[in-house]
Design a binder for these strands. Structure first.
Lengths: 191, 191
DNA sequence: ATTACTATACCAACCAGACGGTTAATAAAC
DNA sequence: GTTTATTAACCGTCTGGTTGGTATAGTAAT
């Protein structure tokens, strides 16, 4: 009855969330339905609704998992760049750029939530607000913010399959961003 | 009352498209339905389907109008910056950043199409591909591309209401981008 | 001036299927 | 033997789309 948190549940919950991400990426947020999800997972509609007692609840879970994975990734990068004075910004950018699957299932939750109930984006909004605040504390915050937007713009294009190569060029793009951060924050701070 | 331009273009067509944009911006792409549109415009569902004989057709029209307006805006800026060697890039960025209404109805067509039938994004993909090619011909193409992504990332955030101030700071952002283009393409080309 | 025809713009009513969600029953796990 | 996980069958509503009809205006021959 009460919300349960905590890990240790490798159960079908994650299978369902994976399928949901995949569905949105493949067919668009409007085609994320319990029926379709039931077909893709082999779990009956009732079974799905046992795990997520409403569609909003499912969308919330998608969004939450995404943010959590992002945070984990960011901390990992943060560790990697712990000696770098611009490591904070770099880890934010690299984590946002990263994906854990073949392609473009990143913003699935976001797009699906935006399509069905924009209010669900509240937590995401807070998370982004925090991230932007973190960026603002860094020298060259305007550049930082711009690059943050750039990463998310590129991700959107990738998710919607609006460019052929931005997937292919991702590694390149990441390297370029790092270079920009290193070389340009200096320039900005001098001015 | 009557005004004809090329193909049939009665004014109610635009009224409907406006309402559609507004609906998506206000309630999310998933709530763009003929019923809701009918309520918002006062035109019956049959009437709507007289103008757009399917939902795909409506989405296509939304997308097309948006691209056309963008192109018009871009050319306008291009004219304004015609003496600027970086005018092409600047006009691309400024046009993408611009809106013709209070806020965030820009990507409505895109998000709605992505939600309901991603294949409809084909023409948009081509348009973006052209724009990217145009950017690539400019010195500092990587920076240009990055800024292009940044502008669209910021627009997405604005549309989804994911940041409080990116609307408010738009003018600032535009000025900053112009400055970046001016000062940094030089640095890049030297290196 | 009347009739007849055509095209545009719209509407009310309806329909089949899809949708989110409920329920009762059931089976396995602890 | 209760908790957890799952199913099949169902329900009311919403959705995209169809149909048949109405009102208006223009055209053009009678």
């Amino acid at each position: 009855m009460v919300e349960k948190k905590g890990a240790g549940r490798p159960s079908n919950r994650d299978v369902i969330l994976d399928a949901a991400d995949q569905l949105v990426a493949a067919e668009g947020a409007g085609h994320l339905t319990f029926d379709a999800l039931s077909q893709n997972t082999g779990i009956s509609k009732g079974g799905l609704l046992y795990h997520f007692n409403s569609k909003d609840s499912l969308l919330q879970a998608m969004l939450k998992r995404r943010v959590e994975r992002y945070e984990a990734l960011r901390e990992q990068y943060h560790q990697q760049y712990r000696d770098d004075p611009k490591g904070e910004l770099k880890s934010i950018l690299l984590a946002a750029l990263d994906t854990d699957a073949e392609c473009s299932r990143l913003g699935s939750g976001m797009l699906a939530a935006a399509a069905s109930n924009p209010e669900l984006l509240g937590p995401l909004k807070e998370h982004i607000s925090d991230t932007l605040k973190r960026i603002e504390c860094i020298v060259g915050s305007k550049l930082g913010k711009t690059l943050f937007y750039a990463v998310h713009g590129a991700r959107l294009f990738e998710q919607l399959n609006l460019c052929d190569d931005c997937v292919h060029e991702r590694e390149d793009f990441a390297q370029y961003l790092l270079k920009l951060v290193d070389e340009l924050t200096e320039i900005e701070s001098i001015r």
